[in-house]
Design a protein around this nucleic acid. Sequence first.
DNA 1: ACTGTATGAATGAATG
DNA 2: CATTCATTCATACAGT
Lengths: 167, 167
Amino acid sequence: MGTKCGRWNPTAEQVKVLTDLFRSGLRTPTTDQIQKISSQLSFYGNIESKNVFYWFQNHKARERQKRRRKVLVDEPINHIEDTIQLNNVSSSKHFQEISTTNRESDQADRVIETLQLFPLHSLSEYSDTEKLRLFTEEYMRDNMTFSCTLEAEMDHPTLDLRLSFFS
Amino acid sequence: MGTKCGRWNPTAEQVKVLTDLFRSGLRTPTTDQIQKISSQLSFYGNIESKNVFYWFQNHKARERQKRRRKVLVDEPINHIEDTIQLNNVSSSKHFQEISTTNRESDQADRVIETLQLFPLHSLSEYSDTEKLRLFTEEYMRDNMTFSCTLEAEMDHPTLDLRLSFFS
DNA sequence: ACTGTATGAATGAATG
DNA sequence: CATTCATTCATACAGT
């Protein structure tokens, strides 16, 4: 066991609570929230506010990183599905527009494939598409009003975090 | 053979390509580069982007670790003297070369700073060329513009990575 | 089979 | 927020 106390080494319970909070939608807790969270988690062992701060920072970054890296791997798979689906809705408005706009060559395939997820005209490159998709996904989530009362299953006080963004 | 697919175990070819890339100066590939590399390496067997990412991360860290350990073990005593003496030879041939080669703003500073931390005397066993390489390599490479076309000797498509930092 | 080493993987802690 | 570094855990493999 790392008794090396030079570095915080979260207990299983602490990780669970943090993960639950993350899964429930919390991404970048405010200072107040961090305080509350670390305060509650100190029940399970030593912990500082900065640990909580870093944890969310890292967890978010790495989820994003993971997703970004998966893109190329996933793509070949989705490509087939999308292509198939494409045949059934090839008469939709968006597709029509794009198809004619980008009737350039093999690039058309990629664009159309993209449109299933994101019907915008400005996506001539895949990377841009992906960027936009990721951005939107996370933007939605990160800026959503978050209201959650987490009741961990262990014997510790309820962790009640209420936010009101857009004050 | 570890058919245990719980952990990536690179093929000899994969390791060779990665090593060549590393030796050619690549240290921290960008996400795009990682994608390309892993894509190319998938030719030799299963591989994910994260494997490439971790490979470079580990390889760099361990080379640094090894060197650090070596320096500390070899010359823990003379270190201070050497550092002082170093100030008197700051106009030596090597420094001149470096400074002029990198007459680009603070890059030169950093190189000299680096050299002060790693006294030349402690590595008399190496040739001058090797000394220079050991001292400058790490700091230089990571901040250098990297443009490299690696043609592996096996039968796989050319791996062409072109960067333009400082765009 | 046991043990040590190389190295894949993960993550806490920053930094800019 | 992205990127990077340090440290540690985990495991495949080699030598005995």
